[in-house]
Design a protein around this nucleic acid. Sequence first.
DNA 1: GCGTTACCGTAACAAACGGTACGGTAACCC
DNA 2: GGGTTACCGTACCGTTTGTTACGGTAACGC
Lengths: 197, 197
Amino acid sequence: MARKKDVQADRERLSAAVWSVLAERGLTGLTLRAVAERAGCTTGLVLHTFPDKRALLVHARELLHQRTAVRADAAEHGARDAVDRLKAVLSQAVTPSGNHDESRVWVGFLAASLADPALAELHVAHSRAFLRRVERLLAPVRPDWDDARRGRAAKSLVALVEGFNVLAMRDPGTYSQDVKDTAIGAEVERLATPPPD
Amino acid sequence: MARKKDVQADRERLSAAVWSVLAERGLTGLTLRAVAERAGCTTGLVLHTFPDKRALLVHARELLHQRTAVRADAAEHGARDAVDRLKAVLSQAVTPSGNHDESRVWVGFLAASLADPALAELHVAHSRAFLRRVERLLAPVRPDWDDARRGRAAKSLVALVEGFNVLAMRDPGTYSQDVKDTAIGAEVERLATPPPD
DNA sequence: GCGTTACCGTAACAAACGGTACGGTAACCC
DNA sequence: GGGTTACCGTACCGTTTGTTACGGTAACGC
């Protein structure tokens, strides 16, 4: 036996490097050497921690999914009533952490998923998980609706959020934080207000 | 003088090849050799028609923008009243031509724009043009609103459309054509119905 | 039909890619 | 503290990338 290392920590650090490179240099610039440089090591460590590039991307994608889920949980937990919970989760989803880095990373993975079935599967799974979360939060807001009706409303809310993220990433002036929050707030209020039908 | 050729036709053919490769193999698979093979020629013709790869991508992006604008014009022209016009343009924007190829191409260009300022500028220009179109179509629907209010509503509609496109591309089962059309139709109807405020 | 000239397929280039193999180095156990 | 062993930086491999240069070929004017 000789020295031992923290493989898990290395994986997280390399995944963070993947996000950073993806946000800054795009999918084309996402090379093993660029990731290694960003993580302060060489390709040796990268390919000893992961079997190949695809596995690295898959892990980075899964970790990103996990982190966003934690953030959504926090937003959900911090809200008071049902309407606030829904609004908080949606609003948090369109609030960029860094200079829209998260959106850029998200788009990078989306484009990469067009050529990698494993990434495609992860993307769909993540997207559906968020949809289910919105459906769950919508249930106490509109208990008078049936599942089908709530499902359609949830899908529209998810589409609104995803659309704002993509648009704000490239044109943050037009799609400012205020614009996004106001739109989401108005939409949720409209869904929550009594008018039956 | 010797033989002459139709440069414009070559450019359109090569741009179409770019779309095809982008949809099928993704951004990573978008190489000059793949484009040449898809167009039935060699890289010789490609780099004699365009100075370099970036110029090829920019032209393909511009032509795509132009084509979608023509389609939107047609949808707008074919509708009867103001509400139908708005609904037709939005619905057409979420109706995939081929097997979501257009969405894949759109995402590919979006990801490519992260590393190419020229593509980024084109993307924003295209996005803003679509937003202005929706604002223009929304004007006769809600003449009682001021520009700011209409602008916010238009941005929400655009976000809804973009979001549906991205979501349906990867999960067409969950976000079916019926789901998208119903949601857009309901949203437009809601905007168009009298209830003031 | 022949010479001229533009076109574009062919081939090669340096650089960079993902991935492999080896060996020096440093940490652990006894 | 010395021997052992796992770690990972270094160097290299074959392939593929964008791009350049050349030359055969085919079409046009006369």
